[in-house]
Amino acid sequence: MAQVAVNPARTAERRRSKKSIYPTWFYVPAGLLYVVLFAVPTFASFYFAFTRWTLQDVEFTGMQNFVTFFSEPQLRTGFINTFIYGFMTSGMKVVLGLALALLLTSQLIGRGYLRSVVFFPVLVSAIGVGITFKVLLDPFDGLLNSSLAALGITGPGWLTDPQWALFSVALIDVWKGVGIATLIYIAGLAAIPQEYYEAAKVDGAGGWKNFLHITLPLVRPATATVVLLSLIGGLRSFDLIWATTRGGPGFTSDVIASVIYKQYQAGFYGLSTAGNVVLFVVVTAIVVPVSYFLNRREVER
């Protein structure tokens, strides 16, 4: 059979000359939206973070807002709580999401209904969830403590005790968001070829070895997605915390976002804008390395 010689230069020229099926001006609306709604506010926030500003006046203050942000105890508490809350909720969503996905992809009766039940909290607004759990976790009349009292157990102030408040809100966040993690893991498990499990069965591998050597490595892309989405959501969380504890009692459940909102309420616009910049830098500094670590591919030779 005759072989046809391929000219690389001609191929490259054809690729360059190939035009997009869409005119260039089709991209203009998206570009304008990006500039107006993202680029301009982002650069404006970085500028106003170095000022003391109101709607009528702007005064450049240099790094003073950042010095104040990290020198006040309640602001440092919110900064630390942000890390605790973000990593706690992200870790629990990964573990519970994978466990539920394994359960809901097994030969379980009514698994379609159970998938709907697990995903339902995702559809409910965070404010509605927060108000509901604030009633359920009331230390005196709440359903949970009343049920514990019937068993002779004295329940704590889930949302009013400084030792329990942040942890309780984190559990509520996990309950609300684990449905997304489960859905992503179900898709990841469905994409694993069954031939791997059949070959492992022939070799005499049990369920635990299948999980460690087949399931866990092959759902790594799903794990990366769940970790990144959960971590970004946890570090930026505000609405659920505000609906349940408003950052209290005291400042024990404050995170950066709730601290920023309180500064806006108090009229410290420059300080709150600096907090937004800090939050942006923190999320970027954490998510970018984590994303690189989770998505890197090791080439086996």
Rank of each mutant, 00 (worst) to 15 (best):
F280D: 04
A12R: 13
G128N: 06
G250I: 14
T215I: 04
L212Y: 15
V40I: 15
T24N: 14
I184V: 12
L294Y: 00
L136Y: 06
K93A: 03
T51S: 03
F83R: 00
V129H: 11
L228D: 06
T61W: 08
R52Y: 10
I286W: 10
M88T: 15
F293L: 15
S125I: 04
A274Y: 04
A190T: 14
G275D: 07
Q107T: 15
Y85T: 09
D239M: 01
G206A: 09
A274G: 02
R111S: 10
D254I: 01
F87H: 00
V282R: 10
F280S: 14
V122E: 07
F167G: 08
F66K: 01
L171T: 09
L294D: 02
L166I: 06
P221N: 01
G97D: 02
L235E: 08
W208G: 07
A126E: 11
A187G: 01
A150E: 13
T51E: 01
R220M: 08
R297C: 01
F50R: 12
S125N: 05
L144F: 14
L102F: 14
V202F: 06
G270L: 03
L148M: 09
Q107S: 00
L294Q: 13
Y34R: 07
A165W: 10
G233C: 01
V299I: 15
T245C: 11
A2K: 12
K201W: 14
I80S: 07
V95L: 15
I153A: 11
P73D: 03
T160G: 05
A266T: 13
L228Q: 06
Y196Q: 03
T223S: 02
F167I: 14
A49S: 15
A30N: 05
T51F: 01
S90I: 00
Y27W: 15
K209F: 11
T77S: 07
A170C: 03
V299H: 13
E198W: 09
V40L: 15
W175H: 07
P29M: 07
A9E: 11
A200D: 08
L171Q: 13
Y185I: 00
M63S: 00
I214P: 06
S272K: 02
G234C: 04
P121D: 09
W175P: 06
E13I: 14
S147W: 14
T132K: 08
P121R: 11
Q163E: 11
D57L: 03
R301I: 13
D254L: 10
R246Q: 11
G91E: 08
R14P: 12
V259M: 12
I232P: 03
T160W: 06
V219L: 04
A9R: 12
L55Y: 13
L229G: 06
V287R: 13
A49T: 06
P29T: 02
A39C: 09
P249G: 05
D57W: 09
V282D: 03
F60S: 01
P121L: 08
Q74C: 05
V129R: 15
A150C: 05
A165Y: 02
T244K: 08
S45L: 08
S20Q: 04
S258H: 08
R297G: 06
A224I: 10
F50Y: 10
T89G: 11
T68I: 02
V290Y: 12
W53T: 05
R15N: 03
V169H: 06
P8R: 02
P8H: 01
V178D: 06
L228F: 04
G267L: 08
F119E: 00
Q265G: 12
S258Q: 04
L104S: 11
V283L: 12
A243T: 00
